[in-house]
């Protein structure tokens, strides 16, 4: 909600603003919502000036219109998805974690959410030579595990880890801060690290959202919506892949559902639910429950990647 005052210029003068104020027109939306002919007659302001003011404000505030052809050209150049490092999971996801999307991995305790994140991180840094931001809310990042995945393939360990920026965040506001840093880094284009970012991981989003959801429903949900918007902007406008992990809750009929409720359920572009089988240690089941590329639900069984032991 912008005040008209912000736009003071040779076009929108202090004097005009005073006249508006008397009529209760303070914000931009107040102004835009009025019929300009009426405003001109009531206040004896030139209609032409009002139209010019409106145009000036609209140019500054409205988002730009892009046509489909340009959009496709922007996407066509460059990589489309990042491998998770697990062949069967990649097949399920139609190639891997897509750039320009928010992908969510849901699962209970110790089903391998973080393992998939780390595996994806390893493949992005070592194979695609791209940089990764790891937003860690529950102290689950392990650099030794990343190196374990690298194994003895003669890769430069230093190089792999130098491509990762680890950000420990204990509440939602710290995540906002990190996202702002990433955005300004990407906007400036001078920082080599930021301009080569292809993957942002948030592990796990639920642990920072749970604390704000209690009490006042409205404020908590509002913050949750804001973080989801920031993540989506990062994915869509800056062409990175965003991978978040989430917990599960059991529904009335015993099925696993992603936690965080109805509003969050609309957020990710793609969602998989992981589960383990007590009789088959090490084996995991991944179910694709949301996707715009393949039919859902669809599931596969796989084993988590083994490192060197």
């Amino acid at each position: 909600m912008a005040l008209l005052k912000v736009f003071i210029s040779s076009l929108i003068t202090e004097k005009a603003l005073q006249v508006f104020e008397e009529k209760g027109i303070r914000t931009v939306t107040d102004f835009l919502g009025r019929d300009l002919e009426e405003v001109a007659q009531e206040n004896a302001l030139p209609f032409k000036d009002l139209v010019a003011m409106k145009r000036h404000i609209l140019v500054k505030l409205s988002s730009s219109i892009r046509n489909g052809r340009e959009l496709l050209q922007c996407v066509d150049s460059g990589i489309v998805y990042l491998s998770t490092g697990i062949k069967r999971l990649d097949d399920l996801l139609n190639g891997g974690i897509y750039i320009g999307e928010v992908t969510e991995i849901c699962g209970g305790i110790a089903v391998g959410k973080t393992q998939i994140c780390l595996s994806c991180l390893y493949y992005t840094t070592a194979v695609k030579q791209a940089n990764v931001i790891y937003i860690d809310t529950s102290c689950s990042f392990s650099s030794t595990r990343v190196l374990e995945l690298a194994g003895k393939k003669n890769q430069n360990e230093e190089e792999i880890l130098s491509r990762v920026k680890h950000c420990a965040c204990s509440d939602i506001f710290e995540i906002f801060q990190v996202i702002e840093e990433i955005r300004s880094g990407l906007d400036k284009k001078s920082d080599v690290f930021y301009s080569n970012i292809k993957l942002v991981i948030v592990d796990c989003i639920a642990s920072v959202i749970y604390p704000i959801l209690g009490g006042n429903q409205i404020d908590g949900h509002s913050l949750m919506v804001q973080i989801s918007q920031k993540l989506k902007i990062l994915a869509v406008d800056y062409s990175v892949a965003v991978l978040v992990t989430n917990n599960v809750v059991s529904s009335d009929d015993g099925k696993w559902l992603p936690s965080l409720g109805r509003t969050w359920s609309h957020v990710p572009h793609t969602r998989i639910i992981l589960s383990s089988d007590n009789h088959q240690p090490g084996q995991r089941k991944a179910t694709l429950v949301k996707s715009s590329r393949s039919s859902v639900p669809n599931n596969i069984k796989f084993y988590l990647p083994q490192g060197i032991t």
Binding site: V28, S63, I65, R66, N67, G68, L71, L72, I233, V236
Partner: peptide, 14 residues
């Protein structure tokens, strides 16, 4: 695709 005009908005105000 040239016939598609896409606008993305971040807030009600926008």
């Amino acid at each position: 695709l040239q016939n598609v005009k896409l606008v993305r908005c971040l807030s009600s105000h926008q």
